[in-house]
């Protein structure tokens, strides 16, 4: 089975976010960038599938800039076979103006040219917290899709996928080829060991310059939420209940 995994470079989850000079994007100074945590589940699942079947390939792909080579190498070190960087650095602002619509379109155009029995993505990228890309990609590729998958089994070319919805768990039957977005709980992503890191250096990483796609939205502002001033510390349970009843009026 040939699996394509879409990955993204994002700020680490404990980053302190500051607004940049343009008032529309973050100031990257001092931020550590990592492979999107949800994409780790996608990469792990793809490698596990290849290992279980004893055949097939895992290609990781990202739309980003030269910096993203680091995250692609991380995937290769985990065990992916090859990596593709769709390089947006030639676009205005280094691709900063690409929204979910344009991003999915550009990636879909390239995924079409890579053999795939399945495309795995993370459920959401923890920068924009969009959770749009996987379903968009599926629509553009005319594939079925199961999002936020917490359990996945393959038999006879069909997936049985489980996902949590409000108050219940759905079991979805889905033929391949398809797009799957992965949630926490699906697996335990492996760490790249030294051997993997060394091997990754010799694996193919192809860079393709992309041409612009028309975004359907533009960012007009980025703001930090008002800082909470800290709570009122109450001395007793009865004071707390009184406050909830009389001030907050929630009881």
């Amino acid at each position: 089975m040939d699996i394509v995994v879409c990955v993204k470079r994002v700020p680490a989850t404990d980053s302190k976010i500051k607004v940049g000079a343009d008032g529309k994007s973050i100031d990257p100074a001092g931020i550590e960038f990592v492979l999107n945590p949800y994409d780790e589940f996608a990469v792990e699942e793809a490698i596990k599938t290849r290992e279980t079947l004893g055949s097939g390939s895992v290609t990781v792909i990202t739309l980003g800039t030269g910096d993203s080579q680091k995250e692609l190498r991380t995937c290769l070190a985990m065990g992916a076979d090859k990596a593709v960087l769709l390089d947006a650095s030639g676009l205005p602002g280094g691709g900063a103006g690409l929204d979910a619509c344009a991003t999915a379109r550009i990636v879909a155009d390239h995924v079409k040219g890579i053999p795939h029995d399945a495309v795995f993505c993370g459920r959401q990228a923890v920068d924009g917290d969009d959770s749009q890309f996987p379903s968009r990609l599926a629509a553009l590729l005319d594939l079925p899709c199961v999002t936020e998958v917490a359990k996945l089994e393959l038999s006879d070319g069909r997936y049985r996928a489980e996902r949590d919805i409000e108050g219940a768990r759905e079991v979805v039957d889905c033929p391949t080829p398809c797009v799957i977005s992965t949630n926490k709980g699906l697996n335990e992503p492996r760490y790249a060991n030294l051997k993997g890191i060394m091997a990754a250096k010799k694996k193919p990483l192809e860079t393709i310059a992309v041409s612009a796609a028309e975004p359907a939205t533009e960012t007009t502002g980025l703001e930090l939420p008002p800082e909470r001033s800290g709570g009122k510390i109450v001395d007793s349970v009865s004071d707390l209940v009184a406050a909830l009843k009389n001030e907050a009026k929630v009881l």
């Binding site: 999915a104 917290d129 379903s135 599926a138 629509a139 899709c145 936020e148 409000e166 975004p215």
Partner: peptide, 22 residues
């Protein structure tokens, strides 16, 4: 919701339209 997150990007892509989620 789980359904909205799954469905709306698919509709947006077919309409080639912008979507702001959440």
């Amino acid at each position: 919701t789980a359904m909205g997150r799954d469905l709306m990007p698919r509709i947006a892509a077919k309409l080639d339209a912008g979507l702001v989620s959440d």
